[in-house]
Nucleic acid binder design. Structure first.
Lengths: 100, 100
DNA sequence: AGGTATGATACGGTTTAATGTATCAGACAT
DNA sequence: ATGTCTGATACATTAAACCGTATCATACCT
């Protein structure tokens, strides 16, 4: 297995679970199969570039190429901005707000 | 051919030529073969994720996953910072300054 | 207990990436 | 004209992605 893609794949998986999307749901949205996604996420299979793009785009993520020296800066920007993008779930959809 | 990887691949090629690196030189550095690189760049072959990573890392580029909404901001940051990394060629090696 | 959703895994089959080597045409020198 | 560097391309072979489907264990919920 190529170990340099592990970070990206782990990031994609984290984004998927953070979004509350199941592998099957992602499969439908991305055009890949659930088994395919499982194997990619568990590192049993190395995805093609386009498969990975399909997978991440379905999670509203983009794969961008950035000069190595700028990576820390970009990472910082993403971290700070990402915080305000999804502030907090505030309510769950099936909240137990049973009283009137 | 998957058309969504074309932009990334075109970017990689532009970075390679901008760095003055030949396909053969990149092949040596990245571990891929020159024919492989040529086929990727010309769109005749879709690279694996790890192949593409190998290729771009040899060009001092990193593949980063960024939320779609932040892409413009990241792109702007990269553009502005990249400008000062390679200030300007100032002279071309074979300048055609033929008149006096 | 029964229903449902999850992720991991297996198997068979097709497609395609990837390697290695070798060649070719074009540019650009000497 | 010869040599050299470039990128594109051909070919055969091996390895692996990818699909489809189906199953399994787990967990959670009624």
């Amino acid at each position: 297995m190529s170990y340099q893609s592990e970070r990206l794949i782990a990031q994609a998986r984290a984004a998927r679970t953070a979004a509350g999307v199941s592998q099957r749901a992602l499969a439908e949205r991305s055009g890949l199969t659930q088994s395919h996604i499982s194997q990619i996420e568990t590192g049993r299979m190395e995805p093609g570039l386009s498969s990975f793009i399909d997978m991440t785009r379905a999670l509203d993520l983009e794969l961008v190429l950035v000069p190595k020296k700028l990576v820390p800066g970009v990472a910082g920007l993403v971290r700070s901005q990402a915080a305000e993008a999804v502030p907090r779930p505030a309510y769950s959809l099936d909240d137990g707000d049973d009283d009137a």
